[in-house]
Design a protein around this nucleic acid. Structure first.
Lengths: 122, 122
DNA sequence: TCGCATCGATTACGGATGTAGTCAATAGCC
DNA sequence: GGCTATTGACTACATCCGTAATCGATGCGA
């Protein structure tokens, strides 16, 4: 059971999932655009992620190269499962029904869902 | 934009969504089973939910009857949408693909999903 | 070799959260 | 009419989170 990733930490994780390994500066630059965080803030987040064993760092000269220890897919799987359990009693179809009602389903989504279902039935 | 409902607050909300209105004692009894919280804890959570305008209370003699101001469906819709946006770039099908891969899809789910899709295409 | 720039580590601090104790009012019992 | 139990309000306090400043080590240019 990996520890919880906070909202701000997740932003850092997305940067690391996109490219790894990266230095603190790399991450900061990548993230600064949207969030306007200082370099220090990003470093703190990296430290916290290290403390939670969600990322690791390899020394490279006198700085560190950070890389994820948790795959994005695994994280996403955990979060999705948690949501489905918390709000839909573990059932997936009500979730989709919910999203369908919100018009969050694009035509592409519908086509892909059909493909997924077809695959499952085989 | 309703304010954020914390994990502990959500437990109280579930009790209120199930039955409303209820007194603080009712909620506490209902919730005590799983969580073992003291009555005071539940009251604090009720206060915070009141402060966030997520529930309301009507005086009944010298106590209050609490009731939700936010429908469970609305909350669930918000959370689902948020998850899909945060983790799947707003696309629903990757979410379902993800859950399918985790074997979170029951046969019933699959049948229901097909029904939902059929409804959408009409 | 000496100062400066750079890097990670440590510390800070306000707000949210989880959990609960205490207080003041009040209503009912004796 | 005074005591006690109940109820909501207020207060407490440790932890986590978001955001950042500061510190100490170290490598590099002058």
């Amino acid at each position: 059971m990996t520890e919880k990733i906070s909202e701000a930490e997740l932003v850092v994780m997305e940067a690391l999932w996109e490219t790894a390994p990266q230095t603190a500066n790399d991450v900061s630059d990548r993230v600064a655009a949207d969030r306007g965080w200082s370099l220090q803030t990003v470093k703190t987040l990296l430290s916290r992620l290290m403390a939670k064993d969600i990322i690791a760092a390899d020394q490279d000269g006198r700085r560190f190269l950070y890389r994820p220890m948790v795959a994005r897919d695994d994280y996403v799987a955990g979060e999705s499962g948690r949501l489905v359990n918390r709000l839909f009693g573990g059932r997936v179809s009500p979730l989709v029904a919910q999203l369908a009602q919100q018009d969050q389903l694009t035509a592409d989504d519908i086509a892909e869902l059909e493909a997924i279902l077809k695959g499952l039935k085989s």
